[in-house]
């Protein structure tokens, strides 16, 4: 941080600066996306790129940056609590269709693990890297837990989880434009299972039902994987 203005040596000013950069560029990305609407301009993809350019241009490291903006990531906690509201408001739908959701969750989880393993092997990614790629479909706290259980590196998995979220939020839209999914249940499950938090945020923008289903599926699939992973590992050994 020495390269920056001496004022920013003050932790408070440092926090305010990086938070302002992040929030400002996020608001800018939202306007840009609303104006032009290309999928690759989605705020979820555009904002990290813009902020990344500023971080690299100012010769700041990730440690510098995150020490000023960690509070934003912490807000994911209360945001998870907030998901109780859409889930509560769609409780009838969820109660009526839980077997369908469960089936989708099992199919999605098996596909996630199998396709990650197969694709990684095909491209010559082996060992720890391949293991760390397996749990990336589930949300961060769960994914890091599973990654450690199966012999991956939790920190690497955390990065893959985030990239998956960004990629998923973007390609989910592209897929929905081409695959005729008529039910909000299917559209929500698609985001919740493959792209966790970021996907759920996107689903929430598409519709309230989609957001509720996505949030519920994200949480349940995370729980399911945490419980199942040690069992599967036990069976394989």
């Amino acid at each position: 941080m020495a390269a920056l203005h001496p004022l920013l040596a003050n932790p408070l000013a440092h926090g305010v600066f990086w938070s302002a950069v992040t929030i400002g560029l996020y608001l800018l990305a939202k306007r840009v996306y609303r104006r032009w609407g290309y999928w690759w301009l989605m705020p979820m993809a555009l904002t990290p790129v813009l902020v990344g350019v500023v971080v690299v241009a100012l010769h700041a490291g990730y440690g510098d940056y995150i020490s000023g903006t960690r509070w934003l990531v912490l807000l994911l906690g209360p945001a998870t609590v907030a998901f109780a509201i859409p889930i509560y408001e769609h409780r009838q739908l969820i109660r009526a269709q839980w077997p369908v959701l469960l089936l989708g969750m099992i199919a999605g989880s098996v596909t996630a693990v199998a396709s990650s393993w197969a694709l990684a092997s095909l491209l010559g990614l082996n060992g720890v890297l391949r293991l760390s790629l397996l749990p990336r479909s589930i949300s961060t706290p769960f994914a890091m837990e599973v990654s450690g259980d199966i012999g991956g590196v939790p920190e690497l998995t955390a990065v893959f989880v985030i990239v998956t979220g960004v990629v998923g939020a973007v390609i989910g839209d592209v897929l929905l434009a081409r695959v005729p999914l008529r039910s909000a249940l299917a559209r929500g499950a698609l985001f919740g299972i493959a792209a966790h938090g970021a996907g759920t945020a996107r689903a929430h923008q598409i519709g309230a039902t989609e957001g509720a289903v996505s949030g519920l599926v994200m949480v349940l699939v995370g729980l399911m994987n945490v419980l199942v992973a040690p069992l599967v590992m036990g069976l394989l050994q």
């Binding site: 992040t22 904002t47 690299v56 990531v73 998901f83």
Partner: peptide, 27 residues
């Protein structure tokens, strides 16, 4: 008693992921 508060967190959920995504800078 909670819906408007919850909506405030959910409306800009994407923003909360941005700082974490920047971890790639160190890799």
């Amino acid at each position: 008693s909670a819906r408007r508060g919850a909506d405030w967190f959910l409306a800009d959920l994407l923003l909360f992921f941005v700082p974490a995504a920047l971890a790639v800078v160190d890799h």
